[in-house]
């Protein structure tokens, strides 16, 4: 695999919290059009890793390239770079004082400078796509967790980013709502969206992932296809992890 078709490339990435080594020499590639699932025990650095991609977390050394753009370079327009990376949070983080439609159209209006009409038309289309055409004017407080997360996915898609990051998108949901969110994500993957997803949903990983990264103590210990990873994990820590979550 050449790095030409890499959507995200980590090269020698290190991150410290004080003296704690949170990310330890990460070298990895998320190829264009593929789905990478990041899993591992809590505290292993999964969320930290995914948050370094759009610089919600800074790194101390190394290089992260997204869609050909060096995200760490000086003089880069961070806001423009971020607008081209969809990010979905564990806690949804919808803006509670704005309606679903306003949440989704905000970036189009304020970052892409579309007119309100154009932006809301696109937002309407995205809300249809995640099955929430009837909740356009609802406020986040009126929506279930699953519905909120689907609005959040629509919001992350709004500026038409070439890559989507998901940081434990179903972990804060009641079990009966996990399915509706995963369904939207499956659809996205089927449409060829490049996705990097931190999750504990191993069924989803098995069905959708092209690659699984297993992390522990700030390192990527394993990088394999889901078949390999679930059938015969290479490291003892991965097999312990798999037996623990079953």
């Amino acid at each position: 695999m050449t790095s030409n078709n890499a959507m995200i490339e980590f090269a020698g990435v290190n991150k410290f919290y004080g003296s704690y080594h949170a990310l330890n020499n990460i070298n990895a590639i998320v190829p264009q059009g593929e789905v990478v699932i990041v899993c591992g025990p809590s505290g292993s650095g999964k969320s930290t890793l995914i948050r370094t991609v759009n610089r919600l977390e800074n790194i101390q050394s190394g290089k992260i390239t997204v869609n050909g753009i060096d995200t760490q370079s000086e003089g880069i327009n961070v806001n423009k770079m971020r607008s081209q990376i969809g990010f979905v949070f564990q806690q949804f983080n919808l803006f509670p004082h704005l309606s679903a439609l306003e949440n989704v159209s905000l970036g189009l209006i304020k970052v892409q400078h579309l007119s309100k009409g154009q932006a809301q038309e696109i937002a309407q289309g995205l809300l249809n796509r995640v099955g929430l055409e009837h909740k356009v004017n609802a406020f986040p407080g009126e929506l279930s967790g699953g519905q909120q997360q689907r609005v959040a996915i629509a919001r992350a898609l709004s500026q038409n980013p070439p890559v989507m990051l998901f940081d434990e998108p179903t972990s804060a949901l009641d079990p009966e709502m996990v399915g509706e969110v995963l369904a939207v994500m499956r659809e996205l993957a089927a449409e060829g969206m490049t996705m990097m997803c931190v999750t504990h949903e191993m069924g989803f990983a098995r069905d959708v992932a092209n690659k699984v990264w297993f992390m522990d103590q700030g390192q990527i210990l394993e990088e394999s296809t889901p078949e390999e990873f679930f059938k015969s994990p290479k490291t003892e820590r991965a097999s312990k992890f798999l037996s623990d979550i079953r």
Partner: peptide
């Protein structure tokens, strides 16, 4: 903190984030 993070993640500037997301709440 998630409110600010979500606003910044969509590409809003610091001041836009304050004005549109943080201060109204």
């Amino acid at each position: 903190a998630g409110q600010t993070e979500a606003a910044r993640a969509m590409g809003l500037t610091h001041l836009q984030t304050q004005r549109i997301v943080v201060l109204p709440q």
